[in-house]
Design a binder for these strands. Structure first.
Length: 452
DNA sequence: TCTGGGGTCCTTCCGCAG
DNA sequence: TCTGCTGCGGAAGGACCC
């Protein structure tokens, strides 16, 4: 999908269509998750510090992500993909590989193009959004094709043309080559995929290590045999928080770690999992990051056990100078526990905050009504003016634009933050007409993995 | 001016066991 | 008993992806 989060917001908010929209963390330490193409013109891109984005595009709309909405749109798209083939491998909310051959929906170039074109049309009809498709004989090439197709396009890489296509491209085009590997290769005088292939496998292994060297050499020759894998097992579950201001108080650090442990276990249990290895992550004031881990005798999903392990791990970490991020994770996952066999918690679990699934707000800071948060971009409903979204808030006021996905650009009004007529609302569907059953996709055609 | 959150995979090092 | 080799699991860190 093209600039997915930003596109969803534009579809949801008519007044933002054609405008620079930046979605990400709005706190002092936020980063850009997605920028609309209009915002990219100003040089804004994902992973950029939000402070920098604000300087580059001061007039853009800045919104916090609404993952629940993005997930529901994503599910609509994945459903269309699954109609093409049982082999669909989601990479994220907005990207997936599809094995068209396994689905019988493509057997040659022509049928692949048809399937891709129909998919793009279906995505637009069902979600109102644009998606780009890369068609090729391997995952790597399909991915590169879909990048080239963005925004709103389709690229088919014909068999036999792969090496000629890849050769002149930057090594950074290849999946797995990030800033560090890119620099490493540049220092060795390797800039393009052709140069990568010329360097030879032994040299790449020497430069980058065994696994990475072998993999990159194969990719430079356009060899990629990785299958499309529909079901991927989760290997770890973690939560982390970056704090607006570094935490110096050791007691506060310990409290935060306990809260993170509880949140992590809640997620773990939500997925029906347990795990053996507890990991504590600490990012210090100077951005140096360290992890400490402890492996238990058996898997657990007991909050008391995870809290205690996390606390023990924290004991071994020096936090003087302050911490900017804390995280707790669990790996070595299983779908059962051994608590019956091993009593791992010293004192048993007298309280179980994790059981309270409805608890979402932090236990300590309960916001008073006057401080109710109105996150920028979230939907609201007003008793008189109807459906709208929060354009901004502050100084006891909240500004709302009243519009819906299928209305024209709406009007703006400002209220007191504690106005009883104003309440948070669920997002409205992006496309009002619900698609009829079976209307999505009747297997088209195609010759390889596609990327939505 | 700083640098999120949630993951995966790989490498290196170390201790232990055979 | 000591030493070297090898394999393995755990710990820690790094790179990468969206």
């Amino acid at each position: 999908m093209d600039a997915f989060y930003a596109s969803v917001e534009q579809a949801s908010k008519p007044s933002l269509r054609g405008k620079a929209v930046i979605v990400g963390g709005l706190g002092p330490r936020g980063v850009v998750a997605t920028a609309s193409y209009e915002a990219r013109v100003f040089g804004v891109h994902s992973a950029m510090p939000m402070s920098q984005a604000r300087r580059l595009a001061p007039n853009a709309a800045f919104l916090v992500p609404r993952f629940t909405l993005y997930r529901s749109v994503s599910e609509q798209v994945m459903e269309l993909l699954r109609a093409l083939s049982p082999l669909v491998e989601p990479l994220s909310l907005d990207e997936a590989f599809v094995d068209l051959e396994a689905g019988g929906s493509a057997w040659d170039e022509r049928s692949a193009r048809l399937a891709g074109a129909k998919l793009r049309a279906d995505i637009r009809e069902v979600t109102g959004l644009t998606g780009s498709v890369g068609l090729a004989a391997s995952k790597m090439l399909a991915k590169i094709g879909s990048e080239q197709a963005k925004p709103d396009g389709l690229v088919l890489i014909e068999p036999g043309t792969e090496r000629a296509l890849l050769g002149p491209l930057s090594v950074r085009t290849l999946p797995g080559v990030g800033p560090a590997t890119g620099d490493h290769l540049r220092r060795a005088g390797i800039h393009t995929v052709d140069e990568l292939a010329e360097a030879g496998e032994d040299e790449l292994v020497r430069l980058l290590g065994r696994a990475h060297g072998h993999a990159l050499y194969a990719m430079a020759l356009a060899r990629d045999e990785r299958p499309v894998v529909a079901e991927r097992e989760t290997k770890s579950v973690s939560v982390e928080d970056t704090y607006d201001i570094d935490i110096h108080d050791r007691v506060r650090v310990a409290t935060e770690v306990q809260r993170l442990a509880d949140r992590c276990v809640r997620r773990l249990r939500g997925a029906g999992l347990s795990g053996r290895t507890i990991v504590l992550k600490v990012r210090r004031y100077d951005f140096s990051t360290l992890t400490r881990s402890e492996t238990l005798r058996g898997p657990t999903d007991d909050p008391a056990v995870v809290r205690e392990a996390a606390a023990r791990l924290l004991d071994a970490v020096d936090t003087t100078g302050g911490v900017r991020l804390l995280g707790v994770g669990v790996s070595g996952l299983a779908d059962y526990t051994q608590e019956d066999l091993f009593a791992q918690a010293a004192g048993g679990n007298e309280e179980d905050p994790v059981h309270d699934e409805t608890e979402a707000a932090p236990a300590v800071e309960v916001p008073t009504p006057a401080e109710r948060r109105w996150p920028a971009g979230h939907d609201v409903r007003h008793a008189v003016h109807g459906h709208g979204w929060v354009q901004g808030s502050g100084l006891g006021r909240v500004t709302v634009r009243f519009e819906t996905p299928d209305s024209g650009p709406g009007r703006v009004r400002t209220f007191r933050v504690d106005d009883p007529a104003l309440e948070p609302a669920d997002p409205l569907p992006l496309v009002s007409r619900a698609p009829k059953e079976g209307e999505g996709v009747q297997a088209g055609g195609g010759a390889g993995p596609a990327d939505g």
